[in-house]
Nucleic acid binder design. Structure first.
Lengths: 210, 210
DNA sequence: TGTACATCAGTGAACGCGCGTTCACTGATGTAC
DNA sequence: TGTACATCAGTGAACGCGCGTTCACTGATGTAC
């Protein structure tokens, strides 16, 4: 009931960090509570003093990592001009070494797993919207001219809607490219997915997303 | 050593089909051999007369489903003009009911799971390339003009490279959009991912990918 | 056509194992006087 | 400063369970004569 002891909170965080690494690399079902606690430097018995269940841990891991990504994108979108912010966000997301490490955005490693668990889905909902808002803020408006718009909203509204659609598509492209790059047995093909995705999102010529 | 009996081959196919449904809906680790065999109308003991292990089944399920998708795309790309073929392929992939069912392309449900298993990765390599080739064949060349090309290859080569890059990015977008749509707890957001992805891939105005 | 036998697909009991979870206990930390 | 006690984070043995896998067996199918 009282405030959690500093030490307790720190241990809890260590468990979250350990699970963040292991779950992304091996999948939620591919890692036992035992392994998570060992990675955190503890024994498995103490786990349930910090989390109600392994499922609760998984949901919180996804939520925490996604919220961290959303905060980082918000920060970048506020401190840089839109073009360079977009560039930085996209190239960091598609960085080949990060992709190969299996770490990076949990959407690419845990997406389908989290989507199957209702606890997971509701946990990540807010962070996902945060990522989309940050991304929409740095998206260029209408890179290619759009024909036959229905034109019933005020000017400015359409721009926002357009930027939001670009953000939705761009996040889809990034998530898919990372998953497909990890799936490709051929390293050249893996790299090609990442490069093609970066090129399709970043308007200016992009030579090397490394 | 001899030819497999017709009955044997048919049973094997029933197991593959059952696993194709269950693995996509619940994940590979979320379904036991027991459940697969029950869904196929058999008992669990007979499984190992048809497959060496559950891992081998998983790899073959992914390979089979992906090869089927590649064949379907090839067929569409050969029998229709590129624009309508692309439209049909993309709208079928992003169909909201199919997405909600959890069936459809195994890349979206099993992608990260398969990517973690080396047997899985090597099993799907060929089919993945087949999908990309079919997609590249129906992709429009340079929807937006590309500036500062290095221009050292023959004309025609650049077009191919460009179409291939579009195919890589388009497949990434489709895979990501389906995963994110399933992850979104909000049905409007789910629909928005699918619509935005379709609109970003299909050049002409696309009103409803249903 | 009918009987005897070989083949083989599928059954279901059994195995060991690792998982998620519980709980009585230990040992360290912090407070009271 | 030092002792006695309460609190509490973490330990590790134990639990039941479900999983992947094996195997002796059954019952149906097909062949030989």
């Amino acid at each position: 009931m009282a405030e959690p002891t500093p030490r307790r909170a720190e241990t809890r965080q260590r468990i979250l960090d350990a699970a963040g690494v292991l779950f992304r690399q091996n999948g939620i079902d591919g890692v036992g509570v035992d392994a998570v606690m060992k990675q955190a430097g503890l024994t498995h018995g103490g786990f349930y003093a910090h989390f109600a269940s392994k499922e609760a841990l998984a949901a919180e891991v996804a939520q925490t990592l996604l919220a961290k990504a959303a905060r980082s994108w918000c920060e970048i979108s506020r401190t840089e001009d839109p073009d360079s912010a977009l560039r930085r966000i996209v190239l960091a997301y598609l960085n080949p070494e990060k992709v190969a490490s299996g770490l990076g955005c949990p959407l690419t490693s845990l997406g389908p797993d989290v989507a199957r668990r209702s606890a997971g889905r509701s946990a990540v909902g807010g962070a996902l919207k945060g990522m989309l808002e940050a991304l929409a803020r740095v998206m260029p408006d209408t890179p290619q001219p759009r024909s036959s718009a229905i034109g019933k909203t005020q000017p400015g509204h359409d721009e926002d809607r357009n930027r939001r659609n670009h953000a939705l598509a761009a996040l889809s492209t990034m998530v898919g490219a990372v998953i497909l790059a990890r799936l490709a047995d051929d390293p050249d093909l893996a790299r090609a997915f990442l490069d093609a995705a970066a090129e399709s999102i970043i308007p200016a010529p992009a030579n090397s997303p490394g």
